[in-house]
Design a protein around this nucleic acid. Structure first.
Lengths: 352, 352
DNA sequence: TGCAAGTGCGGGCGCGTGCACGCAAATCGA
DNA sequence: TCGATTTGCGTGCACGCGCCCGCACTTGCA
C-alpha cells in the first residue's frame, strides 16, 4: 500500500517542451482553433515525443460538457429482447461515467411506421451529439440517416444495419451465420427428414420482417446439408396462447413423425407451453436469443439449444465505442463488429 | 451537445446537512479516526440521506496512494493458458485506472515447489495491498494464506481455489461441470461404446494434478449415461511430438473402431498433428480451453467442440472486483463467482 | 494549578484539465 | 495613419476530493 505516484505526463510537460502555455496545448488538442500553424506543429511534435494523453479523471472532472446520445430502438415489455439492449445502454453509460453521457431514449412501435417517424423528428429537434439505432424500416432509416448527415450528427447501428449508409460503427451478430448455427445444432449427428419451422403471424401491413436473414441462414444450411429434408412452416399468433396451442397440437397430431422443431425469431418461449404439456424425449427444439423466458424453457429441458449472444454486450459496446469516437473525434477501431454467438444448453446455463 | 452539468452531490452537501466541515466528513468516510461518535452518526445519517458517493474522478485525481496487488500465477509461454490470465489482469488494471493499481507479477514453475515458495516469500516482503493467486500446491497455499491473514493482507483466487480458506473472492469455472459438458458434447445423439481419453505424462515427483476435477466430471458423466462404455486412457509426453504421434498411431491402428476422443487438460492441440495427418470424417474430438492453438485446430475441423470460458474474463473480473473491495473496504457482491462455460464449434468461432 | 498529550474539527493546498476572459500583436479598411 | 477587428496566446478559476496542518478544547498527571 505504497504512496508513490505514477509518473503522469501532464499538459504542463507538453507546454514546457513546446515553449507555449498549457492553454495553447489545450487548444491544439481539442482543435479549438485560434492557434497559428507553426505553433500547432510544435505542440503536435511535443505531444508525440512525450506520448501525452489527457488524464481522463481530471478531464471529466473539469469538463462541464454533457453529451446527449439518442437511442432509437423498438419499445419493449418486460423480458423482451429490446429490454436487454436497453440495459446494455444503461450499463455502458455508467461505465463511461468519465464522460458525462446523457442518454435520450426514443422507443418506437415496430409495427407502426408513424411512431418511428415521430421519434426521428423528436431526435432531430434535440440536436444530440450522436444517435444509436437499429434498422427496421429500411427506407425510412436511410432517409433519417441522410438528414442526420446533413446536420453533421454521427450515428451507429446495433443489432441490425443498413449496409450502404455512412454509419460510424455497428455491433451485432451475423444473422445468416447464426441461423446456420441453429440449423447445425438441430440436425447434428441425425439424419433429418422433416423439420417444423414455427413462425409468427405479424399483424403488420408493413411487411418488414426483421428475422428474415436469420431464417434464410437456417434454411440455406438445411438445403445444403439435407436437400431431401421437408420443412413444415407453422404460423402462430404471438398474442394468443390458446390458438398457438391448438395450431401446434393439430399439426403434431397429424405429423407425429416430425421431431425437429425450430423458431428463428426470438420467441421460442411461445411454444413452451405446448412442449411442456406434450413431452417427448426424442424431440429436439432449437431457438434463438436468451430472453428470460427462453432460458427458463431451456432449463426445463423443453428446448435443447438456444443460439444467442450476450445481448446487452452489443449495446454496451456500441455505446462505449461510439461515445469514445464522438468525444475524441477519432475513428472506431473497427467499423463492423460481429459479436460472438453463444451456444446455450441446459448444461452450460447456470452461470450465464 | 448541451452544456448542463449533472447534479452531483458533493462532500460539501453532506457537510452542510450534517453541520460539520467537509474535512470531518472525509474522516468519517475513510475511517481516519479523530471524530466523536456523535459526529460520526450525524455524518453517516447525512450520507445515507443524500445517497452520497465520492466522485471517483476527483477521488483518484486527488489521491496519491498507489495500491500494489501481487499476482501469483504459474509461469507461461506464448499461447498458453496462463498467458490469457495474465492479459486479463493487465486489462483489469487498465480498466481500473481510476484507482492507481500497481500489479506485481510473480510467476512460479508449476512443477517446482521450491519456486512457488520463493515467490511467496518475495510477496510477503513487499507487503502488498492484496494477493491474487491460483491453487496448485494445496498445502503450501494454505500455509501462505495463513501468513497473509496474520499480516492482514486480503487474497483472492482465480481459476482454482482451496475451499476452506478465508479468501475474499474467487472467479473460475466449476471443473466438474465443465468436464461433464465436454462428455455430453462428445457423446450427444450417439450410442458410444468406446472413448479414447488422452492424458499427459507429467514429470512431476509432486503429484499435484490440476486437471483431475475436470477429468472426474467427464468420467462421471460417461459412467452415468453410458455405463457400458469403455474408456481407453492414452498417455502422451507433452514435449515430444514424435513420440505423441507414435503413441496415437499405434493405438488407433489397433483400435480402429474408437471414434470418440477427448482431452480434459487444456492441450488438445498436442494431438492436432496426428488428427490432421489421419483424417476421418466419423471421428469426434472434444477438448478444453481456448488456447490459440486449440482454436486453430477447431477452425481446421480436427476438433469438433471446445469447452471453455472466456479465460481473460476470469482474471479481469477477479482483479477489478478485488481492487474495489480492497479500496472501499467492502465485501464483494458475491464470493464464489462461477463464470459461464462457452461451447465453441467451428461455426461460432469467427468472432470469439 | 500548570503543562503535556490527546481529541475534535476547520480550512488550505494540490491533483490535471476545460473553458472563459482578456491582453497584445497583427491585420484590415478607409 | 488610426481606430476596429481579428488572430494568437497566456492566465485564472472551477471541478470534487485526499491529505495534512494547525487551532481550540478536553483530559490526565504531577
Amino acid at each position: 500500500m505504497g504512496k508513490k505516484k505514477e509518473n503522469q505526463i501532464t499538459i504542463f510537460d507538453v507546454a514546457r517542451l513546446a515553449k507555449v502555455s498549457r492553454g495553447t496545448v489545450d487548444r491544439v488538442v481539442y482543435k479549438r482553433g485560434r492557434v497559428s500553424q507553426k505553433t500547432i506543429e510544435k505542440v503536435r511534435q511535443a505531444i508525440a515525443e512525450l506520448g501525452y494523453t489527457p488524464n481522463p479523471n481530471a478531464s471529466s472532472l473539469a469538463s462541464k460538457r454533457e453529451y446527449t446520445i439518442a437511442c432509437l430502438i423498438p419499445q419493449f415489455r418486460e423480458g423482451e429482447y429490446w429490454e436487454k439492449i436497453y440495459e446494455g445502454f444503461i450499463n455502458g453509460a455508467r461505465a463511461t461515467a468519465g464522460y458525462n453521457l446523457n442518454l435520450e431514449f426514443k422507443l418506437y412501435d415496430q409495427t407502426d411506421l408513424e411512431s418511428y417517424l415521430q421519434c426521428c423528428e423528436r431526435i432531430l429537434e434535440k440536436h444530440p451529439a450522436g444517435v444509436i439505432t437499429n434498422a427496421v424500416f429500411k427506407e425510412e432509416v436511410v432517409r433519417f440517416a441522410q438528414r442526420l448527415e446533413t446536420q453533421g450528427i454521427p450515428y451507429a447501428f446495433v443489432d441490425n444495419k443498413v449496409d450502404d449508409l455512412n454509419y460510424l460503427l455497428y455491433y451485432g451478430v451475423d444473422p445468416h451465420k447464426s441461423g446456420a448455427l441453429g440449423a447445425f445444432l438441430l440436425t447434428t449427428r441425425c439424419d433429418v427428414k422433416e423439420i417444423a419451422l414455427v413462425r409468427l403471424i405479424r399483424d403488420s401491413k408493413h411487411k418488414a420482417d426483421p428475422n428474415a436473414p436469420r431464417r434464410h441462414g437456417f434454411l440455406d444450411y438445411i438445403d445444403e446439408n439435407y436437400p431431401q429434408c421437408r420443412i413444415h412452416t407453422l404460423f402462430i399468433p404471438p398474442e394468443d396462447p390458446q390458438e398457438t396451442y391448438r395450431t401446434l397440437d393439430a399439426f403434431f397430431t397429424s405429423h407425429p413423425e416430425v421431431r425437429h422443431i425450430a423458431m428463428t425469431n426470438s420467441r421460442v418461449f411461445l411454444i413452451d407451453d405446448y412442449l411442456a404439456r406434450n413431452p417427448d424425449p426424442n424431440r429436439i427444439v432449437v431457438g434463438f436469443d436468451d430472453l428470460d423466458r427462453n432460458l427458463a424453457s431451456l432449463r426445463e429441458g423443453h428446448i435443447e439449444y438456444l443460439v444467442t449472444r450476450h445481448i446487452p454486450m452489443q449495446s454496451y459496446h456500441a455505446l462505449t465505442a461510439f461515445a469514445e469516437c464522438i468525444i475524441k473525434g477519432t475513428a472506431p477501431a473497427r467499423r463492423n463488429n460481429y459479436v460472438h454467438m453463444d451456444i446455450l444448453h441446459r448444461r452450460n446455463l447456470d452461470d450465464y
